[in-house]
Structure formats: structure tokens, C-alpha cells
Simulated scan of single mutants.
Amino acid sequence: MKTYKSYLFDLDGTVYHGNEPIVSAIHFINKLANSHIPYGFVTNNSTRSPKQVAKRLNGMGILAEPWQIMTSSVATASYLQANMPHSSLYIIGEEGLFEALAAFAQTEDKPDAVVIGLDRAITHEKLSKAARFVANGADLIATNPDAMITTESGLVVGNGALVAAVAYATKTEPIVIGKPGAAIVEAAIKQLKLDPRHTVFVGDNYDTDLLAGIHAGIDTIHVQTGITTDLSAYKIQPTYSIPSLDDWPI
């Protein structure tokens, strides 16, 4: 097992299950903090701000600050700053996305880009506006491609399904920022000033977390505490697979 100088963690299935913390992860992350080993968190959730995510982690006994959190909303803002710094936007989403994109002009008059994050108050009118803008030449940007997400009430439609409606209506391929793409991991590495050669991504879901790390070109640790338990069907394997973080030495 390789010794790493920094760690990035997925959240749901890796650090907690809903409102229930995963004890092995809590202990491991706090060991990192006590050993002064840098770490951060990467989440496709676009609805919460880094401050809100950090507060939730703190409530579970995890040492975390907002600057250690990379949400898909913050990663989207980073992408826009790097590639479309003066663009005007039409935004579908919730508080976390609007906060992350506060520096950009918002308009309903020929926006340069339509940005879609999860909106649990989505309407036909919002989707129709988005589709009209994209059909008229606006870029279509998705904070993340999640088809469905897990809630305490069960599975619900994720942001990927909202984006798919606009993409299908306009025959347009969206720019996707969140996992399994590399952009969100690269944004986290840049924000935390980590060395990718000595950083490892820890996640439970092969199709999002582990692929994001693989696409970003960094090592990955699969923890068998969440969605993916059997890796035998996958051609590209993570660097390591362990039952839980109790099985990984610092």
C-alpha cells in the first residue's frame, strides 16, 4: 500500500449514509486532521454551499472547513471563470448554485450559457426557457449528471434527468462538470493546493467517484461501504479496494 500525502473523499456511501456517519471514515479523517495530512471532500450535490456541507460534517464529528469542500456548483463556477469569465447565465438550481455563481451576470435575454443544477421546484416553464436559450445558441452546462439520487424517502430524480430533457429537446450535448468527469476533481486539487501525484481519491461508487479519480489521473481507493461492492465487471480497476477505511493505514 502506497503512502499518500493528501486525500479527497466522496461523501454519501463513503463518509456517511444519509444522516448516519460511517464510523470507520470518521475515525480515519480525524486521524488525518491530527496528523496534519491535507484532505478535502468532493460532492456532486449542487444544492448546498460549502459552508452548509461543512456544518453537516461537523455535526457528524468530522473536522471540516468550507474551503475543504468542492461541490459541483463551485466546480462549475471554476470552469466558467477559466473558460467563459464574462459570460451571462440563465440558471436553474437551488441556493448552493446561485451562491457559487453570484459573480456572473444573470439574464433571461440571450444568455451565453444555461447552467442546470438540481432544482426540486423545477417547472415546465423553467425547462422551456432553458431549451429556448440553448436552441438559440447558449451553451448547456450541467453541474452533474446524476440520473437519480438517494434520499430518506427513497430514490428521486437527479439533475442528470433535468439536463437530459433540455439536451433531448435541443439535440445538444451538455458540458458536464461533476463526477465522473475529471473537472470537479481537478478543481478540488487546485483549490486545496494538492499535488496530484501524491493525492488519492476515496469513494464507494465506481461509476461516479472512482471514474472521476481515474479520469483525473490520480490513484483511487474503493471502499466497500456504499453502492459498488463487486468490481469484477469493470475493465479499469481502482488502485485499491478495501472493506472500509479501518483497513487503510496512515
Rank of each mutant, 00 (worst) to 15 (best):
V114N: 02
I22F: 09
L210A: 04
F9L: 13
D219M: 09
I242M: 10
V15H: 06
R120M: 13
A138C: 02
L231W: 02
G93M: 06
T107R: 11
K193T: 14
G13R: 13
P180H: 05
D12P: 11
T123S: 15
D195V: 03
V185G: 02
F201D: 01
N144H: 15
Y168C: 08
Y206M: 08
Y4F: 13
Y206A: 03
S49Q: 07
E99A: 10
D230A: 10
A188Q: 04
S88Y: 06
A82W: 00
L118I: 04
K193M: 05
V202M: 08
N58R: 13
N44K: 04
T228V: 05
E94I: 04
I214E: 07
K235R: 09
L32I: 10
A167V: 04
I91Y: 02
Y90H: 05
N19L: 12
Q52K: 14
G93K: 08
I218V: 14
V114G: 02
S128A: 11
E20A: 15
K190Q: 13
F9T: 12
Q52W: 03
Q68V: 09
I141F: 05
D219H: 14
A135G: 14
P238R: 08
I26R: 15
V163K: 11
S49I: 04
T143N: 07
F201E: 01
D219L: 10
N83S: 14
I184G: 06
S35R: 15
V157P: 02
H17W: 07
Y206N: 03
Q106C: 12
A183D: 01
A138K: 01
T123L: 12
I22V: 08
E20Y: 03
L231Q: 03
R48Y: 03
T3Q: 15
L32F: 11
A216G: 08
P238M: 04
Q81H: 12
S6I: 07
V114R: 03
K235V: 04
P66W: 09
A182R: 08
S244C: 12
M84V: 00
Q224M: 14
S24D: 15
L194R: 05
N205H: 07
T47N: 07
S88F: 07
A182C: 01
G18W: 13
G181K: 15
N144T: 04
I91K: 00
I242T: 13
A113H: 00
S24Q: 15
P21Y: 11
L11T: 10
K110F: 06
A130E: 13
I242H: 13
Y234V: 08
V223Q: 11
Q237F: 09
A188E: 03
T150N: 11
S87H: 10
D112L: 07
E65H: 13
T76S: 11
M60H: 07
P196A: 12
L127W: 07
K51A: 15
F28M: 09
A131E: 03
I22H: 13
S49M: 07
Y7R: 09
Q191H: 06
A183N: 01
D109R: 10
A105P: 01
K5F: 08
G18E: 14
P85S: 09
S232H: 10
S35C: 05
